[in-house]
Structure formats: C-alpha cells, structure tokens
Design a protein around this nucleic acid. Structure first.
Lengths: 183, 183, 183, 183
DNA sequence: GATGAATGAGATTTCATTCAT
DNA sequence: AATGAATGAAATCTCATTCAT
C-alpha cells in the first residue's frame, strides 16, 4: 500500500478504497473510458467525493496502477525466495494472474510520472529474478527486463482481446512465451 | 478490397477510401472512441457523408478490419509460396508490421459477425501455414492456429502499450514468441 | 451588423440572432454569470446549438458587445449631423439610453481583442464629436475621449447598482457629468 | 467595527477578521461569485468555520459592507471638521480611495436590510456635508445626497471596468463629476 | 469551536445521430 | 449525394452547504 503525504481520516480512507475497487470493476467491464458517475455510484459515494480524491480520470488510473505494482512487488519477493531456476517463471505466472484481475485494466497507463517510483522498484526486483534465472541456466542470456515486461504486456493484450468468437487463452500464450525464454 | 453489393459511383468510392484512411489515423491517435466529427473532418467530408457510408462507429471499424484481413490474406498467400520451414515465421512477421500500421487499431473488434467470412478464410490459410511448418519440423506439434493469433494479438498489445518511458519493442517480443514456437 | 467570414445559412443566422437576443435578456436579468442552458432555452434552441455558435460564454458577450458598438456608431453618425455645440451631449444621452437596454450588459467585457476593431472606430467618431464640441466652445479643452468613455461607463455603473432602496437615476447622473464637461 | 451581540472569544474574533480580509481580496479578484472554499483557504481556515461565522455568502458581503460604511463614517467626520467649502470634495475623494480598496467590492449589494442602519447614518452625515457646501456656495443648490451617491457609485463602475486596453482613470472621472457639482 | 470530507444539484461541455438545405 | 446545422442525452466537473470527527 502506498502512503499518502498526510494520512487520511478513517472514513476518507475507506471511501478511497471503495472508489479504487469500484473503478477497477467498472473500468474492467466498460473500458477505461467508462463514466465516472458509474464509478461513484458503484462505490456508493457521491461524485463529488470521487472528484475530491481523484481530480482526473488519470489520477484514478494511476492510483490503481500503483496498487497493482505493489502487488507485483509482493509477488517478486515471494518469487525471490524460490530456487533460482524457478523464481522467474513463478513470478511471471503470478503477475499474469494479477493482470486477469479487474485492476489489471490500469496497466494501460504504464508510463506516467506519478507511477515512476513504483515502477523503478519493480524493475529492480525483476532484474534480480532474471539474473538468478540466467545464472541457473533457466533463461537465455540475451533476455532483458524489458523483454519480460513485453511478455506480461502481451499476455494482457491477449486477455483483453479475448471474445466469445475467438477463444484466446492468455495463460497458454504466457506459457508459449516462457518456452521462448528458455535457452 | 471488399466489393459492396452494388459498385459505388467513383466519387462515392473515393469518399469511402478517404473515410477509412482518416478513421485509421484518428482512431490510432485518439483511440477507437474518437469523435466521428474528427474523422469526417480529417477525411475532408461532412459528417452526413460519413453516416451515409457507415451507419455506426462499429460499421467503420468492421470495414477497417475487413480491409486489414484482406492484407493478412495477401501475406498468407505470399508466405505459402515460400519453403515450408520459413513460411510461418515470414507470415507472422509480415502481419506484425501490418499491425503497426494505423489501420491496425481495428483489430480490437476481433469478433463481429460481419467479419466472420474474412476471418474464416484467414484461419484456413494460417492452418495451412502452420501444418506446413510442423511437417517441416519448424514448429512444435502442439501449437494451434489460436496460439498464432495469440502471438499476433500479444504483439499488438505490446505495440499499443509502448510509451516513451518504457521502450518495449513489439518486434523483439514477436521474435521471442517465435522462439517459443520452435520445437 | 457585423459580417462573419462566411455567411451563415439562413436558419443558422436566425438562430444566432435569437441566441443573442436571449442572451441579452437573460444576462441582464440574472447577471453575466447566468446559466447558458437558460439562454438556450429562452432562445428556443438546444444547448448544442448555442455551443456550436459561441464556444464560450465570452464569445457570446463579445458578439453582444460588437452589436452594441454598432449601435453606438449609428448614434455617432446621427450626432455628427447636428450643430457642433449639440452633437456631443446628444450622443452621450443616446448612448446612455442604449446602455439601459438589456444588451448593455455586454459592456462589462469592454476590452477584448475580438472587439478591438469596433472599439477603435467608435473611438474615432467620438473624437470627432469631441473636437467639434470643443471648437464650438461647448466643452472644456482638457477633456479627452477617455473621459467621455468614463462618463458612459460611470452611468452604466449607476444603472446597475440601482436598487429599490436607493433611488439612483443614471439619467440624472449623466446630466451632472455633462455639467462637469462644460467650460 | 460593529459589535456583535455577545463579544467573540479572542481567536474567534481573529478568524472573523481574517475571513473578512480574505473575502475582500478574493471577491475583488474573482468577482463576488468566487468560491467560498477559496475564501476559507485564503483565510487559512476551514470552510466550516467560515459558515459558522457567516451562514451565507450574503452575510459575508453585508459584513464587508458594514465595515466599509464604518470607514465612510470616519471620513465624513474628518471632512466635517474642514472648512465648509472644502469638506464635501474632500469626503468624496477620500471615499473614492476607499472604493479602490479590495473591500470596495462589497458596495455591490448596496441595499440590504442588515445594512440599513449604517447606511442611514452615512446618509445623514453626507447631507450635513452637502448643506454646508451649498451654504458656502461651493455646490449647486439642486444637488441631492442621492446625486453624491451616484457620483461614488459611478466612480466605482469606472474603476471596475478599467482594463489594460482602455485606460480609464476613476480619479479623473471623479474630478469631472466634482466640476459638475459646482455652481 | 474548528476542521475538512461528503454530498448532490446544477452548470458546462461533448458528440452520436438526424434532417433541412 | 453531400453538407453541416441542430438536437439533447450523457458526461464532466464545481461548489454551496451539511455533518461526522
């Protein structure tokens, strides 16, 4: 969890959390362009409250993304505790699942100054996982952290395009990429 | 190019083409939710004309997609003429490039009844390419056409999320997937 | 009347006129901050139409002001035809009356680049009136055109502050200023 | 200063003063329709505090006006001590300056029952000044107190309409009116 | 008393769509 | 057929006012 400058009053903090949860669901269902009125309604809160906390739609997405990256960090820590040959794949699979979560929709604004610090830290831990895997001979030497991000972003693209007509499975896509990562 | 029921008058056909080109650019730049007024303006045409040709936003996207799939078909034919061990990879790379084109934005509505025939044909040719590759030992046996679509859709996701901050290269991502496809 | 760059379609021109008339009345009654929805409603027109014609509130006020200045010009021409000793006072009285008109509310945005040309012309004719009056000995020599504008603006301030409690009469105020202008 | 029914605690009195000062500045800068949140913020006080002290926007304006009229009274007393031929002009000039002050913005709600007592007293002293001036032959006999108010209100209108484009000087306007008052 | 979070009505603004010209 | 003006529903956003802390 990210700590805002001054801690919010208890009720305000609750509303913030409800708003984020509502936003995740609504954006996931209707796309990131969904009506903010809908978000407030689903959070059981007046629009004004939403706007007080998140002046723009972007602010909402950023907050969502920061929370998401926090989860990534947690997964990275967990993965770093595994044997080096397994950590990387475990991390990628775990994050894949996180992206299938409603909040995953925030990933779209991947780059935004506000998110930079969280992103930098994620990057660092992914580098650690990657190097461990490479040293253990579980990953090609020319793979970079950006490649890993590409795998995740790609899996997300697959998940989003999934429709009733075409049965694309992001999990299968991820495994295919994992195969491509092996030496 | 798809041929509408009755051939359009020359000027009408020109307008149709201008509108599609304009839509591709505008949707690519501002997202598929962009104002149709903007599309008409960029096409140098009144909104009314746009609506006469494409009654909904969806119709526009479908037309874009049909054209896109036509290009896929052309690439597939070209690839089928190559040695079986090379055709599949060549096709995927070529389609990757097509998706980097403004019109690529249309891919988002992957499933839509209107597009079904074109999609079925693409599917068929991709199956041919895939089987050829598998018989030539250039591709794992458990790979399906849907996996290939996943690779393309994934690359598209990468391309779309690319930003100035994170340098994700869809081409590199595609190569990684190609590596994953090999036996 | 001001001529827009390209002449409007007949119906559009009518709507424009209705909107200006409605705006004058509504702004006069409720202040320049009145709801634009009200303006559109009173004009018997959709809000969208109002916004198509006047993208901002300011645009509406400017158009109002330009029309008002056109009336000033007409009064100035009329006054220039009178004997030099009478023209100036006649003009100031006539413009005073114009300001008591609903459209007078536009005077508030006296300075705005868009209005500059109209204002410059008004200035010129007022200078002519002033010099004629001074040569005829009907006006002090140190009076400037800006002083005259001050008289008008002041009278407008009086008219606007008038309330039921204080019976301020802008006409009387204007006469007092006229007395102050005499040598 | 007006004394409320029960004297306020020292800190409450301080807050009241800060709020009035803040309101004067904010209303002067953004108009009397400015956001009350802004007023509270500039006063360094919560909105709740503002509302406890002044239940409506009008109450704030009235308080501002009462303070303003207190200053008028002080100027009137000072002017009554001058030679009769000079008092009136001195008073009008002094009040002109007061109006150029941020608090001057309050003058807009000239009539309001709450202000009536203060206004009545001002009226009385202005009458004294006026009669003295008339008896001394420094002012036309037909001038009324309302005329004087008109002069002040007019000068205020000039000051408010002043912009960078048109250089209207309310001081000059006032002098012109003073000339008009002389016999 | 002071604070500032919450509220929701209302204002502004946009845009898909229709339709007169 | 083409045009672009008109429409109004829906979205965004603001702010006066209330009320829990």
């Amino acid at each position: 969890m990210t700590t805002p400058a001054r801690p919010l009053r208890r009720d305000a903090a609750e509303n913030r959390a409800r708003l984020l949860a509502a936003a995740a669901e609504v954006f996931d269902a209707q796309g990131v362009g969904a009506s903010l009125d809908d978000v407030a309604r689903r959070a059981g809160v007046g629009v004004g409250t939403l706007y007080r906390r998140f002046p723009h739609r972007e602010a909402l997405l950023e907050a969502l993304l920061v929370d998401l990256l926090d989860s990534w960090l947690a997964e990275a820590s967990r993965a770093l505790a595994l044997p080096p040959a397994e950590g990387l794949a475990a991390f990628l699979r775990a994050v894949g699942e996180l992206q299938a979560t409603p909040a995953g929709c925030a990933l779209r604004i991947w780059s935004s100054p506000a998110v930079e610090p969280a992103r930098a830290e994620v990057h660092e831990r992914m580098a650690a996982l990657l190097h461990a895997a490479q040293r253990a001979g579980a990953c090609r030497d020319d793979v970079t952290v950006d490649d890993l991000l590409g795998v995740l972003v790609g899996a997300r693209g697959v998940r989003e395009t999934v429709t009733t007509t075409v049965a694309l499975d992001w999990r299968r896509h991820l495994e295919l990429c994992l195969a491509g990562l092996r030496p």
